[in-house]
C-alpha cells in the first residue's frame, strides 16, 4: 500500500489496517475500518471526507486519544520505525506534544479558559524538556513571536477569551510546535475561522512547516484547502479510504465516483456552474454500513457486484489508488468514464 512514492523519501508515519470502533449498547460502530496510508517526511498528507467519514477518529487514533467506549481494535501505526500501538501510556505521553503534536478545529474551546496563554505554552516545555517555569515562559515568548502574535509580551499574560479566533488558533499552533515536533496533525484547523484569517493561518502553517521541516497530516472537509496545502490526498468515506493520490493527480484525474461527486457538488467561487451535480442520498449510519462498497447505495454506476462485494484499494499504476470495481478487470458493466459520465439518469435527486 506504500508503493506510490519514490522509495528514497523517508516515511515519517505509516498507518496499516487501522481499525477503531466504538462499543455502544447498540453494538459495535466501526468508525475507522482498515485504513492504510503513510506520510512521507517533510510532506503534507490531507485526509478529506464529510462528517462521519472517520477522518478525525483516524487522527485521534494516531495520538492514542480515543476515549471509551471507543478503542483502537487493530492494525499498526509505525512512527519512526516504532509501533505506537505497542507503546505504554507513559511512553505515549512522552511522544504527544513532543514528537507528534495536534491542533484542533475550535480555537474557542480548545484552550483552557482559566490559564494564561503563556502558561499553556510553557507547560509543554515543562513537561517535555523539564524546564523551570521561568525558562519555559521565556521560550513561550519566543513561540508567540514565531507564530506572529502582535505584542507577544503582553499576550503571554492574556487569557484565551481576550484573544480573537485567529489569535487563539495561533496560540494553539504555538503550543503544538513548542517542542519542534516531527509530525503535526491538524484537525480542521481553519474551519471555524473567516476566510481572510484562514489564509493567514494556512500561510503560517506552511511557512513553519518548511522552516522546521515537519511532516503534516491535515484533516479537512474543504477540497480548496487540500488543493492549496497538501502534497498527497486520501479521500475517506464511511470509515475507509476510497482514493489516494498525489494532489495534482487527484484533482486532474479523480477516479472514484465519490471523489468525482464531491468535486462536482462543490459550489465554486472561481468558475460559473449552472446546476450542481449532487450525490444522491446520505452518508450511511456507522452502525448500519452496507456490506459491499460503502458508496454503492449512492453511486450512479453501482451494479450488483458493488452491493455485494467490497473492492480493495488498488494501485492504478499512474499514482492513484482507488477502491472501486470500475477500475478493476473484474468490472462486469459497460465501460465507464467516471468523470464524464457522472450523474443520475432520471431526476431521482433530492
Amino acid at each position: 500500500m506504500d508503493n506510490l512514492k519514490d522509495n528514497d523519501t523517508k516515511t515519517i508515519i505509516k498507518v496499516d489496517d487501522l481499525q477503531t470502533s466504538f462499543f455502544t449498547h447498540k453494538g459495535e460502530v466501526k468508525a475507522v475500518d482498515g485504513v492504510h496510508f503513510d506520510v512521507p517526511a517533510g510532506k503534507t498528507l490531507g485526509i478529506v471526507g464529510e462528517s462521519g467519514s472517520g477522518k478525525s477518529i483516524t487522527a485521534l487514533s494516531i495520538m492514542r486519544l480515543i476515549e471509551a467506549p471507543g478503542r483502537v481494535k487493530g492494525g499498526s501505526i509505525t512512527f519512526n520505525g516504532e509501533d505506537l500501538l505497542a507503546k505504554s501510556e507513559a511512553e505515549m505521553r512522552r511522544i504527544r506534544g513532543n514528537k507528534i503534536s495536534m491542533i484542533f478545529q475550535e480555537p474557542m474551546t480548545s484552550l483552557n479558559p482559566v490559564y494564561t496563554i503563556g502558561d499553556q505554552i510553557a507547560e509543554s516545555y515543562q513537561i517535555h524538556q523539564g524546564l523551570s517555569k521561568k525558562q519555559a515562559l521565556e521560550k513561550a515568548l519566543g513561540m508567540l513571536e514565531l507564530v506572529g502574535i502582535p505584542s507577544p509580551k503582553a499576550r503571554l499574560k492574556a487569557y484565551p477569551h481576550e484573544l480573537s479566533g485567529g489569535m487563539r488558533q495561533r496560540a494553539m499552533i504555538a503550543i503544538a510546535l513548542a517542542c519542534n515536533p516531527e509530525l503535526l496533525i491538524a484537525d480542521e484547523p481553519t474551519t471555524a475561522l473567516d476566510v481572510t484569517i484562514q489564509a493567514q493561518i494556512l500561510g503560517l502553517v506552511n511557512d513553519l512547516q518548511k522552516d522546521l521541516g515537519m511532516s503534516m497530516l491535515l484533516i479537512t472537509h474543504d477540497l480548496g484547502v487540500v488543493a492549496e496545502t497538501c502534497d498527497y490526498v486520501a479521500v475517506m468515506y464511511a470509515g475507509k479510504i476510497v482514493e489516494y493520490a498525489d494532489v495534482n493527480t487527484l484533482f486532474a484525474n479523480p477516479k472514484h465516483p465519490y471523489t468525482v461527486g464531491l468535486l462536482k457538488s462543490l459550489p465554486r467561487h472561481d468558475i460559473d456552474q449552472e446546476e450542481l451535480e449532487v450525490i444522491r442520498g446520505m452518508v450511511p449510519r456507522p452502525d448500519d454500513l452496507p456490506n459491499g462498497c460503502r458508496f454503492a447505495p449512492r453511486c450512479p454506476f453501482a451494479r450488483e457486484m458493488c452491493v455485494e462485494r467490497l473492492p480493495d484499494l488498488e494501485d492504478q499504476g499512474d499514482g492513484n489508488q482507488v477502491r472501486c470495481w470500475i477500475h478493476t478487470d473484474q468490472w462486469d458493466g459497460p465501460e465507464v468514464n467516471v468523470r464524464d459520465d457522472y450523474g443520475y439518469s432520471e431526476s431521482t435527486q433530492s
Binding site: M63, L65, R93, R94, I95, R96, G97, N98, S101, M102, F104, E106, T109, S110, L111, N112, P113, E123, S124, I127, H128, M172, I175
Partner: peptide, 14 residues
C-alpha cells in the same frame, strides 16, 4: 469532555 482537556492530553500532560 471539553476540548481543552483533549488539548491537555494531546500535549502529553499526565
Amino acid at each position: 469532555h471539553q476540548d481543552y482537556i483533549r488539548t491537555a492530553r494531546a500535549k502529553g500532560v499526565k
